[in-house]
Simulated assay, not measured.
Amino acid sequence: MLRIFKILLVLSVASWGLLGAFGNILDWSGTTGAVTAATSMTTFDGGADNWRATSNPAIIIVGALAIVFFKSASAILCLIGTWQMWTVRAGEATAFAKAKTYALAGCAVAIFMLFSGWIVIAETWFELWRSEVMREAALDAAFRYCGMIGLIALFVGMHDE
């Protein structure tokens, strides 16, 4: 029974990545707008005057593409992991543990993107923590996703009998 829930949880991370990447592509202006808001530092007083603030289109495009790439990579790895876990769900614990590799890698990619992109780069480097507008919309959401995916990875990674 726990193996089935582990599979479903990894599938939910894959769904998050697929839906997120699809949404980022469909609302490309919103995606680039969020990256612009972070990098330009215009959503809080004095931010745009900071030497780190930039509206360089290349940086904005690279940031937006990175979001789509890492969400897609996370989803693909989690889907592969889901399939592998599903095919050995009734097998030996060692086979199921080995099947978790791609699933856990997918979760790690998602955590990497959320933490490095939004917490390290946006919040720390571009001081997005100072923005009343973006704090809840971007940073709180990234923290929530990162935390939930991390918990899922811990649960999935636990030893199976």
Rank of each mutant, 00 (worst) to 15 (best):
S72V: 09
N50W: 04
G23R: 03
T39R: 00
I25M: 08
S12L: 15
V10W: 01
W129H: 13
G23V: 01
S116Y: 14
F69K: 06
M85K: 04
A53Y: 11
S15G: 14
F143H: 04
A90G: 09
F5G: 12
Y145Q: 12
G17N: 05
I59G: 05
L114H: 06
G91A: 13
D140S: 09
C146I: 10
C107R: 02
A64L: 04
M158W: 08
A53W: 10
T36W: 01
E161C: 08
A53T: 04
I121S: 06
P57K: 09
T101P: 00
E136I: 12
I121P: 00
V10N: 02
I60W: 01
I67Y: 01
K100V: 07
M1Y: 08
G30M: 02
L154K: 07
S15I: 13
S131Q: 10
I119D: 01
A141R: 14
A14L: 04
M85H: 08
I119P: 01
F143E: 03
E123I: 09
S12K: 06
A48K: 12
C78E: 07
F155R: 06
A105E: 07
W16C: 09
A75E: 03
M134C: 10
I25Y: 03
T31D: 01
G47R: 08
Y102T: 02
A53H: 12
S74A: 15
S29A: 13
R144Y: 14
F70G: 02
T42N: 13
V68T: 10
L114S: 05
L77G: 00
E136K: 10
M134Y: 12
A95I: 07
F44W: 14
G157F: 07
V62G: 07
D140K: 05
S74R: 03
I25V: 15
T31V: 05
D49P: 03
L26K: 12
H159R: 15
S12N: 08
L104M: 09
A64W: 00
I149L: 02
V62A: 15
G81Q: 02
W129R: 09
I76M: 08
A99D: 06
A93K: 11
T32Q: 15
I25C: 04
S12I: 11
G46W: 03
N56M: 06
M134R: 07
I119M: 07
A48Y: 07
L65F: 04
D27H: 11
M1Q: 10
T54V: 09
V10T: 06
T39C: 01
I4S: 13
I111W: 05
C146Q: 12
A64N: 04
K6A: 03
L77W: 01
M148R: 05
C107Y: 01
M41K: 10
W129A: 14
C146S: 13
A90V: 10
V35P: 00
I67E: 00
V133P: 05
M148T: 08
A142R: 05
L128T: 00
V13W: 00
C107L: 11
W118S: 01
L65Y: 03
M148I: 15
I121G: 02
A105H: 08
E136D: 15
M113R: 02
A58Q: 11
P57N: 12
L128K: 01
C78L: 07
T82H: 00
H159T: 12
L26F: 13
